[in-house]
Computed example of a mutant assay.
Amino acid sequence: MSERIGFIGLGNMGQPMALNLLKAGFELRVYNRNPAKAEPLVAQGAQQVSKPGEVAEPGGIVITMVANDSALESVVLGKEGFLERLGQNGIHLSMSTVSPATAHKLADLHAKQGSIYLAAPVFGRPEAAAAGKLWICLSGAQTGKERVQPVLKVLGQGIFDFGEDPGAANVVKLTGNFLIASAMEAMAEALTLAEKNGIDRSKVIDMLGKTSFACPIYQNYGKAIAEERYTPPGFYLSLGLKDVGLVLQTADSAKVPMPFASLLHDRFLASVAKGRGDMDWSALALGVSDDAGLSK
């Protein structure tokens, strides 16, 4: 591949994504707040830089995969951010889960510099990222989308285009994360009901996952919840709290009541307050056990 790409954010998702780009022949400049996270990439030929702005090639492509809106704005707009250096004809492929409002703000600021902001949040856990099997939601300027297709095809097994509104893909991502969290809460309640009636949790989810609920969310998260296996985390519970907060923020701006989202927000908040923020977000199920008087 002839194009050099900047990549910011080498956590549980970003690191395997960046490794796949290297394996596909892309040249990478990488940055992470914790420099040690870049070591596996440097070993495969990536160039490590010490500031976010240094990943950008003028007119090039920069991918960001960071934890939240604040982290994203910092690497783009901060004192050492990359926005000005990216410049005319550059593309920022933002693959983080952030608010639609932040996407709109950044898209406007990129446009003033002559560059393009594309939202491309993903569905899939770290193992899917490593396998290049992510599902990618995409929105933003059409001209930018055409240029990043070779990159996205390395990272994902499917790309879903939601138009030119830069915030649209993030709305879709938030709706999906809301549905996943709702399913986990429902599974936790159902399996706790079974357990308190003397029925094996794993047998219940095994049957349901093979019949009426034969889909990855129920099969994978259901198995983890049934087995009460919440470490190591694929997605931190603290980030689940952040995402449900974004759901409620987006719903508020659109005047959409979401009582389930409010319940989930309280569940995640209580879990973080109990010191579970660094567990997998499916550990919200422990809160259901707590409420039912089961010591875990």
Score class of each variant (00 low, 15 high):
I116L: 15
I116Y: 06
A120G: 10
P121Y: 08
V122T: 10
V122W: 00
G124W: 01
G124P: 02
R125Y: 08
A128M: 09
A129W: 02
A130F: 06
A130S: 10
G132R: 11
K133V: 10
I136L: 14
C137D: 14
L138W: 07
S139E: 04
G144W: 09
K145R: 14
E146W: 09
R147D: 15
L152F: 11
L152R: 07
G156Y: 04
Q157D: 15
Q157Y: 14
I159G: 15
G163Q: 08
E164P: 09
D165N: 12
P166V: 06
G167A: 08
G167Y: 01
A169R: 12
A169H: 09
A169Y: 10
L174S: 05
T175W: 09
G176F: 07
G176T: 06
A181C: 08
S182N: 09
M184I: 09
E185Y: 03
E185P: 03
A186K: 02
E189D: 05
E189P: 00
A190M: 05
T192V: 03
T192W: 00
T192D: 01
L193P: 00
E195I: 05
K196D: 05
N197H: 13
G198T: 04
G198I: 01
G198Q: 05
G198M: 03
I199P: 02
K203G: 11
V204N: 02
D206L: 07
D206E: 13
D206F: 05
S212A: 13
A214Q: 12
C215S: 07
